[in-house]
Design a protein around this nucleic acid. Structure first.
Lengths: 234, 234
DNA sequence: GTTGCAATAATGTCTAGACATAACAGAGGA
DNA sequence: TCCTCTGTTATGTCTAGACATTATTGCAAC
């Protein structure tokens, strides 16, 4: 309960919007009026309104005023923790196994899936993640050697590539794709499940300044893994 | 290409972080120094740094300074558009069918899944979404009448409940859960697919000020539907 | 050594102005 | 009627200060 003027104004406005007292489209008081109401400088209310606009709660139009935005509900913040940390956070034992490691150059399929230029040198890893000794996911990972040369000598036999990259690559953008698939025979065997069982497949492409760093495809047992995403103001 | 001083400072700092020139943990210049470097007031750099901290790109500690945050990669912005708009955006024809509509009170299972108090009056809808005449998803939806009394008389036979709620409920928080399931016989029939086919299941609980508004479970054909989430600064 | 106090240095918050910018409204002219 | 010009108005950006807050540092007493 921080009681800065800033947060008080913000809380008041959020409450009005949240409660429906100020419905979508409603014109909220001008900075001028809020300034008078709270007896503060315009800069103070401006900061609040700018922040609210930034988060999409309100919409500001010069000359016209500020308006409560229509709730779009079109975006959510998705938490995708590092697998080891997440599994340990659930109180289970994390396990990791490297299945194979190859150095090859990108073919047409990689270019299509992972946006890697054909012919680019890359490391292709295949590994398994375990929770409490039971297989949880299979991972197929491509790492571009042009973007991450250190990957050529990194020891991926004990540390999962995701965690390694997290600590060696500065900042990234990413795109995820989710779908559900039936396990084929190989997948089923590796996951210690029946053929055809539903699996959650997550594909993630990570890049920096337009250069693809890594592509990963993880296949989870659909029953064993739940992704959670939260959304909302606050 | 807005060339406000604000955005110029911001772009400079983001570029340094992005390029790896300022690695995670690096102490970025003090407000004082940036102020001298750009020849501006402290308030100006403060606004930039506060915004960057707000987005998690940097971390600020009193007396110590501001530091480049470790790339967490633990959150992504997930776009979950309204189904009708999304299907039409793909150039396909959207269709909707209400399968059943019941008014009942919440049982223990609802309380568990949807955080609805046992005994609370609710509307239970079951419907189907189509893309180009082919079934795409089955939806099971609970709407709390305590939170949304107008739902009792709303005409859900032509407009999907998601779109209706979007236009009638002010502001919401939500939590999503993703998993993969094999279609049971009923699901398979409704989706016009084979029994056992992998489906992507999305469950979403939406509330306002701690009061649950609605709970929805959507089951998509795993092959037909791809969710995409993007993440990154800028 | 260890504890505790005080100085210091950074961010956090706020003020009372200033000028810039964009969009709208109304007046006047073609 | 339609267009353009001009003033008005609310937001956008910025300044040069001020005091508050707090974590660290270093000194001093135990």
């Amino acid at each position: 309960m921080s009681s800065t003027l800033n947060s008080r104004i913000r809380a008041d406005i959020e409450a009005k919007i949240l409660s429906g007292e100020w419905p979508p489209g409603f014109r909220i008081p001008y900075e001028h009026e809020l300034m008078a109401q709270y007896g503060c400088a315009r800069m103070t209310v401006n900061r609040v309104l700018a922040a609210l606009a930034n988060e999409g709660l309100i919409e500001r139009r010069r000359r016209a005023g500020s308006f409560v935005a229509r709730p779009s509900m079109q975006s959510a913040v998705l938490e995708i923790p590092d697998l080891p940390s997440e599994i340990e956070a659930r109180g289970e034992a994390y396990g990791y196994e490297l299945l194979s490691r190859r150095r090859r150059s990108a073919d047409r399929r990689d270019a299509n899936e992972a946006a890697l230029p054909v012919g680019e040198q890359l490391i292709h890893l295949r590994c398994r993640h375990f929770a409490n000794e039971k297989p949880l996911a299979i991972e197929d990972r491509l790492i571009s050697l042009a973007a991450v040369p250190e990957a050529a000598t990194a020891p991926f036999d004990t540390e999962p590539p995701g965690s390694w990259l997290l600590n060696h690559v500065p900042w990234t953008e990413a795109e995820h794709q989710f779908s559900a698939i039936n396990a084929d025979q190989e997948t089923a065997t590796l996951l210690d499940a029946g053929e055809g069982v539903a699996c959650l497949r997550i594909q993630r492409r990570t890049w920096r300044s337009g250069i693809t760093i890594t592509f990963v495809r993880q296949v989870f047992l659909g029953q064993a893994y739940h992704l959670v995403a939260r959304f909302g103001p606050g």
